[in-house]
Design a protein around this nucleic acid. Structure first.
Lengths: 358, 358
DNA sequence: ATGAAAGCGCTAACAC
DNA sequence: GTGTTAGCGCTTTCAT
């Protein structure tokens, strides 16, 4: 229990033979300072190993940093995890004077997002963190940035935009992982069918591409059955799968690259009672967890939505407070491999009472 | 950009018709206050929805919270990850006036830890976070706690002690996961050999128990070959494995429940050129990652040591500052399933430049 | 261009 | 038992 030991601006002022006001001007890059004094102060700060006290800074700012989070409400199954990440960031960042405002549309549909962004009073915010709706959201993001409000995207990106960074998953990488797992689980031979939500989305293309890359290179005895598209409709995925299973094409593996595709596919396999097929899906929900438990789904690849919103917010605050800039425009959170016996960590109840996520 | 909107003690004081000093006495549970006034103040605080401003609190404390972290240096391969977690916690918690002191012995051997704890001037610390050495460390931990210095353990526990909580992995659960993966990767049949570091440690017993539980219940066609002990010596694990492979007992799976066991086993399999065996190991290192890449190791179960030290520190600070108490004495971090194509996220380089771990 | 001073919300020391 | 006051390190405003 000793007094604070960190270097303060006061010490720098003394050392540099000036006042704390001037030190602040130098450190915070504010105008009204002689370049020579500025250089000297910076030099001293460097030598003393000064690190700013973020708490004192936030306290004296006397203003809150207001951050708007644009996302959706449904399907609640999925978005509640995102919301939990936001809540976590909210409680942690409150100490830094950060206030978060949720701006949710019912769905993450292009129209709904457009309307929301159209009517958004962006001048109220010091930063915007957006679960973006792809191409249609680009002009809005660019406008916000042009007007001086930094934007970060998460979960779903708007690649061409001027956003500062994107926090999400590496689809190509997770596709490769899926390929490897499928290859190993099938013992290197068989026939696998692939079903996706929309075949023309980059998410599908990347997951599919990664999957095929590995299968073709490392598991030549596994063939890939041409893929089907279910338009994010579990019922459609179900009927496609049911059809495939009936034809008996000796398919022993299914790779479904999206949430809805996984739900529908699993349902069909359960209905057909086919225990001898290996199913690798994406994302988690009550129904997928049940399938994991009952053995109708072999494994799920999960890209922790909690982490995506949580980290995007943390980094935006770092940008706003410390002027941090990302090393890359795209920041990937690790995909989690979920089997039956490590599934419990991802149930909603578990997450809610997880002491590490408070 | 508006002024702070949170309720302050000043507002509570005004509302309760008293001074901020009294409010503080009530809120911080300090003596010298009339029970009646205290109740009234608490009531008002409750009504106004007061949340303390941790920044202002840390600032005005004028003291640092000094936390000692007891751990080891070697094998550096492993402990450097633990150290990274400590560094992360250190930078994040610095704002809260937390100073961390590293107290590392060369190895985590009973004698070395005992000596370190014996000579530890625990009165210097507000809290101690210990990578404990099991039973031998219990009396020391109990003494520290008795003398008023709270203790938390991480990575390795001292179960019978008075520590506030333990942050580590759930061995039984990861054993089950290993069993499930082995069962699925072997297509439900075969013979698997198990090798561990010390057969009488709880870690081994739990991992082994979880593994057998699942294999016996769900994969009756898989037989388990009696286990071998390698005393944390890779060379010994190597010779055991080489022997087993030579005898040709039709073993097609290996489950190694510890780091050294995994390293040695993988080496033997590589030497024998046996591609047809499935190996599930524990932990990660340069050599294991190389084996994953070359296909000599199928998958590794990884209990993120970074998270263990990082979270233990965070929670200890929460305890010290907010009086938080854990919901359970044992807090588990999730085991990660690592294959070749998601391995990169766990390389040291990747972790170092990971923007989420700064 | 620079210095002095007020004050953010809280704790701790000191008066009464 | 209670009120008052002096800071913690920083930002901001107002003099100079």
């Amino acid at each position: 229990m000793k007094p604070f030991e960190r270097v303060t601006i006061k010490q720098i002022a003394k050392e540099a033979g000036t006042s704390i006001g001037t030190v602040d001007r130098a450190l915070s890059n504010r105008p009204g300072i002689n370049p020579a004094t500025k250089a000297r102060v910076l030099q001293v700060a460097q030598e003393l190993g000064y690190t700013p006290n973020r708490m004192a800074s936030a306290l004296s700012r006397k203003k809150v940093l207001r951050i708007g989070v644009v996302s959706a409400k449904n399907p609640a199954d999925f978005y509640s995890y995102i919301d939990q990440g936001i809540t976590q960031a909210e409680t942690e960042l409150r100490d830094y004077g950060v206030v978060i405002e949720r701006l949710y549309s019912p769905l993450l549909a292009p129209d709904e997002q457009r309307e929301l962004l159209e009517n958004l009073d962006y001048t109220k915010y010091d930063g915007l963190v957006i679960n973006a709706g792809g191409e249609p959201s680009v002009p809005y993001i660019n406008k916000f940035v042009a007007e001086g409000v930094p934007v970060a995207t998460f979960n779903s990106d708007s690649p061409g935009s001027d956003r500062l960074f994107f926090v999400g998953s590496n689809s190509r990488q997770s596709g490769r992982l899926g390929g490897e797992m499928m290859g190993k689980l099938l013992g290197g031979k068989g026939k696998v069918a692939i079903i996706g939500n929309y075949l023309n989305t980059t998410t599908f293309v990347d997951r599919f591409g990664g999957f095929c890359e590995v299968i073709q290179r490392e598991y030549p005895e596994i063939s890939i059955y041409p893929c089907a598209e279910c338009y994010s409709n579990p019922a459609r995925a179900y009927s496609i799968m049911a059809g495939l299973l009936k034809e008996d094409l000796h398919i022993n593996g299914f790779f479904s690259t999206g949430y809805s595709a996984t739900v529908g596919a699993v349902e069909a396999i359960k209905e057909a009672g086919r225990r001898n097929v290996t199913v690798i899906g994406y994302d988690l929900s009550e129904s997928i967890m049940q399938a994991l438990k009952d053995g109708w789904c072999t494994s799920a690849l999960y890209q922790d939505p909690f982490q995506q919103s949580y980290q995007a917010l943390r980094l935006m605050v770092r940008h706003l407070i410390e002027g941090w800039v990302p090393p890359s425009k795209t920041l990937f959170v690790e995909a989690q491999v979920v089997f039956r016996y490590n599934m419990d960590s991802y149930t909603k109840e578990h997450l809610q009472e997880n002491p590490f996520r408070y």
